[in-house]
């Protein structure tokens, strides 16, 4: 088996672009997922009548169906209902659908992890429920949910490879393209693996560092 390094180098510009697409899909999806999750977690924490059941149902549905099938549903099934969506749009919608559910659970768990005693302590000095949320629960919950939050961010970034199935030109899609065109299977998979390590590993390390700083620094609980 010989490694065609010259060929590998020649694909770099294309892969660089693909990395850009991966990050774009991943970061955008994380952002929109967070928006969805904050709204949902608030509904769950306050037990908003009716709505919280809906949110529970959504979370279970989104977490217990494979991302690929959700993606196919949005990209291939919705058009037959008259909704036409681009590959990129389908990718963001689907990733948000799944990411929002995971992050909802992360935030809810964070709020529930705030010790009951902290709530009583706040009430005993006369804080209203709103003040309690703002000054005690949210600051502590956000610190408590950091590890799970960051783990889910990395998970979502990695899951972006799934959207290659709807022709979003991210890293896996680019890899498959080159394999199909030039049959350089080993080389391209090696580049892909290397890229994954290069993107995700530093990110994981950075998040872990941030987590340590935030949790054990002066803001810890």
């Amino acid at each position: 088996m010989s490694f065609d390094t010259a060929f590998m180098l020649s694909t770099l510009p294309a892969f660089l672009k693909a990395v850009g697409v991966t990050l774009q899909v991943g970061l955008l999806a994380i952002f929109t997922s967070l928006l969805v999750a904050v709204a949902n977690a608030a509904i769950l924490v306050f037990r908003t009548p009716y709505l919280w059941r809906l949110v529970k149902g959504y979370v279970e549905l989104a977490r217990n169906t494979p991302l690929l099938i959700q993606l196919f549903f949005v990209y291939f099934a919705l058009p037959s209902l008259g909704v036409k969506i681009s590959g990129f749009g389908a990718a963001i919608i689907t990733m948000t659908f799944m990411g929002g559910a995971y992050l909802t659970e992360v935030l809810r768990a964070g709020v529930e992890a705030v010790p009951r005693a902290q709530l009583e302590s706040g009430r005993s000095i006369g804080l209203s429920e709103g003040q309690l949320l703002r000054h005690v629960i949210l600051p502590q919950a956000s610190i408590l949910s950091l590890p799970a939050l960051f783990a889910t961010f990395v998970f979502l970034l990695k899951e972006t490879t799934v959207v290659s199935a709807v022709a979003v030109p991210e890293i896996l899609y680019t890899t498959k393209n080159y394999i199909a065109l030039y049959y350089k299977t080993y080389e391209m998979l090696a580049v892909l693996t290397l890229l994954c390590v290069l993107i995700f590993l530093p990110l994981s390390l950075l998040l872990r560092y941030l987590e340590r700083r935030l949790q054990h620094g002066q803001y810890g609980v």
Binding site: P115, A117, Q118, E120, S121, G122, H135, V136, P139, Q140, I143, Y219, G220, V221
Partner: peptide, 8 residues
Amino acid sequence: QSYHLFGH
């Protein structure tokens, strides 16, 4: 009993 100061 356990003070319950706000840790943050």
